[in-house]
Amino acid sequence: EDLSVVGSWSSLPLHKAYEAPFWSETLPGAGDFKVELTTHNQMGLGLSEIYPLLGQGVYDVAMTVADYAVGDAPELEGLDVPLLALTADEARAMVDAARPMVADIYRARFNAEVLAIAPYPPQVVFCNAEINSFSDLAGLKVRASGRMTALFLEALGAEGVNVSFSEVPGALQNGVVDCAVTGAGSGYSAGWWEVSTHLLPIPLGGWDHVVTAMNADRWNALSPDKQNLVRDQISSGFEEPAWASAQDALVNDIACLTGNGECASGDARDMVLVDISDADFETARGILVGDVLPDWAERAGGDWAARWNDSVGQVVGVTIK
């Protein structure tokens, strides 16, 4: 079988360490597959175009951040809710609970079959301002990607600002934004520590789950044996190892940014690690559950809120009213 595969950001560890080896070695080694692998940034694809083009059969397999596709599928925002999962294990449990919903969404909206869901590192907050609690974010300008994160920030009294990744360092330095949300590792390698002082190690931007999906026509044309082979291989050869390293990566990246612990990626920096009190955390979570999630339920429409309550909600102990 010839497969044309579009990977996620080529410069990030998920692609380099897991996607690329899986598609170029593991899968071809396990069965009769010939894979052509590129990435969406190498192709110059618009972020919101990746899954719609997959559905049209422009390529066979695509993987990218689910959040990029919520413009076409607001119900998909429920996969990656900020603040609910603090560790990789919790995030994993959320994803497993959400999987049947995600599969339905991809079939209906993008004519695609979901094969795997892997995490980018949690989306933490870099601030060039003194931050000691969530309430300190009020009145600050925060760069966030993703609509639910932006709405959550607004509910906290902060102002969501849309700045592209490349312009963040300048914007932080100059006060165009006071804080910015991204993966701890990306912020470390892009030098955000140069222009910010405080690190809030809470996944305010969620985990940015990367969904791997195959064009549904292509998937249905595979024999059941091949389908099973692909599912088994991608679960053991890609998804498991990616999740297994997620927690360690977070610990390492935070160590690199703040100097608390061993940094395996290079020189450790000295950002201030902000410790959020339990009471403060509960207040923020209250805002999330009371305002932001009901908003989403309305945006998504249908019975999505009910389905979410019965699956993800059970795992994290949250019910959308």
Binding site: G44, G46, P52, G57, V58
Partner: peptide, 22 residues
């Protein structure tokens, strides 16, 4: 050079390459 209907993405490419704030 490919078996894939790449030209179907023409409109998407035109939109995403021109709607750029940079």
């Amino acid at each position: 050079y490919t078996n894939f209907p790449l030209s179907r993405a023409l409109g998407n490419m035109v939109w995403s390459s021109s709607s750029s704030a940079t």
